[in-house]
Amino acid sequence: MSDLTSLLDRVRTEPRSHAVAVVGALFAGVALASVHWLGLVAAGALASLVAPTVRRGAAYALGAGAVCLAAFAASLGPAAAAVPGMRPIVYVTVGAGLALPLFGSLARAVAR
């Protein structure tokens, strides 16, 4: 268990390993979110675990949600032109895309 703690401490303090961990967490989070909506919670948890503080973990989780939403919008392709006419479901999509990763960022508060 101390090996994991020392690894997390190193990832949270060293700039190079921190950047690699954030990019890896975003990549894994987008991959998981493309398969199932629970991947959004995992994306927030993964992104926040590499954050140096709980507050920055919440910000990282919101960023992960924004990246997942951007990937989803890009995957729509030409059908994206019809999105403004689908207002109720768009609100649910954006709300879930931001709230679920934020919920996942609670993992950072638990794993101090």
Rank of each mutant, 00 (worst) to 15 (best):
I89C: 04
F27D: 07
G85R: 04
G39C: 08
V90F: 11
L32I: 02
A99I: 06
L98T: 11
A42Q: 08
A70I: 14
L38V: 12
G104K: 00
M86L: 09
H36R: 05
A99S: 13
S75I: 13
V41K: 01
T13N: 10
P101C: 04
D3L: 15
G24W: 02
L62V: 12
R16A: 09
L26R: 00
A51Y: 01
P78E: 02
I89H: 07
L26A: 11
A71K: 09
L76G: 12
G39L: 06
R10W: 07
A74Q: 08
A28R: 00
A51K: 00
D9R: 15
D9E: 11
V54C: 03
L98K: 12
V54W: 07
P52V: 14
P15R: 11
S34P: 01
A82E: 15
A71F: 15
A70D: 10
E14Y: 13
A71M: 13
H18D: 01
L98S: 14
M1F: 11
P52M: 07
L26E: 09
R108Q: 06
A58V: 08
L46A: 02
A51H: 01
A42R: 02
A109D: 15
M1E: 12
A58G: 14
A81W: 07
D9H: 11
A33I: 08
A58T: 13
A74F: 14
Y60R: 02
W37M: 12
V94A: 10
V54N: 11
G77I: 04
A80K: 13
S105F: 00
A82R: 12
C68Q: 05
A73M: 10
A33V: 08
G65D: 12
S2A: 15
P101G: 05
A28C: 03
V67L: 08
P101L: 03
V22F: 09
A109W: 15
A31N: 01
L26D: 06
G63Q: 07
I89N: 10
G85W: 09
V94R: 03
V92I: 15
A64H: 01
A28F: 01
M1W: 10
A80W: 03
S105I: 00
F103N: 03
W37H: 09
G29Q: 01
L100S: 06
A21L: 02
L69V: 10
A71T: 12
V110F: 11
A79H: 11
G63N: 12
T13Y: 01
E14C: 12
V35K: 04
L40F: 12
A33S: 14
P84H: 13
A45F: 00
A80V: 13
V54Y: 05
T93C: 07
F72S: 08
A31Q: 06
L46E: 05
F103H: 04
T93Q: 08
G97V: 08
L62A: 15
V54K: 07
V20K: 06
A45P: 00
A42C: 04
Y60S: 05
V20R: 02
A28D: 04
L49S: 03
A19F: 07
S105K: 00
A81S: 09
A51T: 06
L32R: 06
S6K: 15
F72I: 10
E14D: 15
V94Y: 09
W37N: 04
A47M: 03
L69F: 11
G57L: 00
A80T: 05
L49V: 11
